[in-house]
Design a protein around this nucleic acid. Structure first.
Lengths: 218, 218
DNA sequence: GTCAACATTTTTGTATACAATATGGATGTT
DNA sequence: AACATCCATATTGTATACAAAAATGTTGAC
């Protein structure tokens, strides 16, 4: 039970930024934040450093720290990168995955299917996380897995959004089954392609949502 | 001209750790470092935070910050990840690379050839950096490129080591030419494979060096 | 001699004080 | 009125002071 204020505050700020409480370019004022969290500037500054290190905010020397929400272009780049990294995980996992992990994946998929039937997008989301996390781990490369996890987490809020699109859950479901088939067969190229496409489609759907939002705003 | 002590110190510490001035598990004592750099603990702490964020050091709450040199296993994982990420960059670059960048690559290779002839490993190293950096950039995905650059930088000291192996520069040279050919032909799978193997061999050579060192030590 | 409980000392984490720099506005000039 | 200059203010960056927790050393019992 670590009672470090800096860590707690960093998590809280990250959450606030991810949930859109701050816009791109907003300055993260140390004094207001210190008052808000009831601490001094010191732990606030440490928390801000962490945000800067993880790319969520930007620091201009002697000017302050500003939130840096990714724009459409960077988001698409991040989705593309995620697709390629997942493909890599899949390629490696196809050759290294354990029997236990394979049945874990099948179990996750079964639970996903239930969630689709019930229209329970939260449950679907939870099992989906588990599914992907298992594949990362089964790449047999814990460094790669940690990087994948990191980007996955960064894209989490956006990934989640596109799941709300009509029919997307069922489609995603089918893609998952393709992936498991390829992994079971030990077909590395097919696993890579299936995962790349799966995440690539997520990016496409997300882009669609964004352009829709933009035209709606006009 | 940023005069932030914290930034300068973080860079200095990173350099010290990369050049092996600290062993794995060494505690980075705030007070000694403060005396060493002639500043107070505050900028030291900020610098340490940055090291922790980039994975060079580890923080145990209320215990301190400890340097974390990657062991053999993690190093091989990082090389494998680098190989796969470079492969991805190559695959994307094969479809997106500009004529200008292609001639840049050829020029880098020509300079590399000169360096090999002269046995100038520093010059070779410099042009090699340029070569890979160009490919990252030509992936057309600046997020991916920045991640590739980041890992490349992390592996830099180890990459450099294996270049000293007999005949390695000439071999690496030939691999570079394969890569340029594939990119010129726009053959994405071949470019990916060539880059994956190129970096994969670096990992192999490095592993060889390590086991040699270990047996020599016994 | 070993081990446990307590006191002392270090060290981390946080608060506050101070220094240095950037920002915004008032003032004066053209 | 537009613009430059200078000053007051606000904010960041650093130093120091204090609080809390861990590491260490000492003492005493068995």
């Amino acid at each position: 039970m670590t009672l470090r204020h800096a860590d707690r505050i960093a998590d809280a700020l990250e959450e606030l930024i991810f949930t859109g409480q701050f816009d791109d370019g907003d300055r993260l004022d140390e004094i207001s934040l210190a008052n808000h969290f009831g601490v001094s500037r010191t732990p606030i500054r440490e928390a801000l450093q962490r945000l800067v290190a993880s790319g969520i905010a930007e620091q201009l020397p002697r000017r302050g720290v500003f939130v840096r929400q990714p724009g459409p272009v960077e988001l698409m780049e991040m989705f593309e990168t995620m697709a390629e990294i997942e493909a890599v995980c899949g390629r490696l996992a196809a050759r290294r995955i354990s029997e236990d992990a394979l049945s874990d994946l099948e179990q996750s998929n079964a639970r996903c299917r239930d969630a689709v039937a019930k229209g329970d997008s939260d449950a679907y989301y939870r099992e989906n996380e588990r599914f992907h996390h298992t594949i990362y781990a089964q790449s047999g490369n814990s460094y790669l897995a940690s990087q994948a996890q990191r980007l996955h987490r960064r894209l989490q809020p956006f990934r989640r959004l596109q799941l709300r699109l009509r029919g997307r859950m069922a489609q995603s479901m089918a893609e998952h089954e393709d992936i498991v088939e390829a992994l079971t067969a030990g077909n590395d190229e097919r696993a890579a392609t299936a995962l790349r496409d799966h995440v690539g489609i997520q990016g496409e759907k997300f882009r669609h949502l964004m352009t829709e939002l933009r035209t709606a705003a006009q």
